[in-house]
Computed example of a mutant assay.
Amino acid sequence: MPHPHVQEAEAHLEALRAALAAHGITLPSLGLEPPSFAGTYAAPLIALGNCNLTTAEALAAALRKGAAG
């Protein structure tokens, strides 16, 4: 039986991927966290994954820019 929130989680995942891409940021490991399907979480978890230092710096800069308005 599929998790009841898979489509919702996939939609949020794609929205996050698109928002990151708009800032030139790609997280190669971005995806749904498989173990969360077996747990008691209300919805699947999104794994942000690993990134190199350049990507971490770009992500931090984009978040700071967004927070500044």
Rank of each mutant, 00 (worst) to 15 (best):
A62L: 08
N52M: 04
L63C: 14
S29N: 05
L16E: 05
P28I: 03
P44H: 01
A58P: 00
A19W: 12
N52I: 02
N52P: 02
L45D: 01
T40H: 07
P44Y: 01
A19D: 11
A38D: 06
A21Y: 07
L53W: 09
A19R: 11
V6L: 15
L13I: 09
A61V: 05
I25E: 01
A58N: 10
A38P: 00
S36W: 01
A67Y: 13
A22F: 07
K65V: 03
H5Q: 15
G66R: 15
E33P: 00
A22Q: 12
L63H: 12
P44F: 00
A67H: 14
Q7N: 13
T40Y: 06
C51P: 00
C51T: 08
G49P: 04
L20R: 04
H12T: 11
A15G: 09
G31M: 04
A18Q: 14
T54W: 06
E10L: 15
H5E: 15
E8S: 12
P28D: 04
Y41F: 05
E57N: 09
R64D: 13
L13T: 05
H23N: 10
L48I: 03
P4I: 14
A56T: 04
A11L: 12
A58V: 02
L48M: 09
A62E: 10
P4K: 13
L59V: 10
T55I: 09
G24N: 06
A47P: 00
N52C: 10
G49Q: 05
A43M: 06
T26E: 12
A38M: 02
H23Y: 06
T40M: 05
L30R: 03
A60Y: 11
Y41S: 07
L53D: 10
C51G: 03
H5I: 05
A9H: 12
L63E: 12
G39L: 03
H5D: 15
L30G: 03
I46H: 01
L27H: 08
T26A: 11
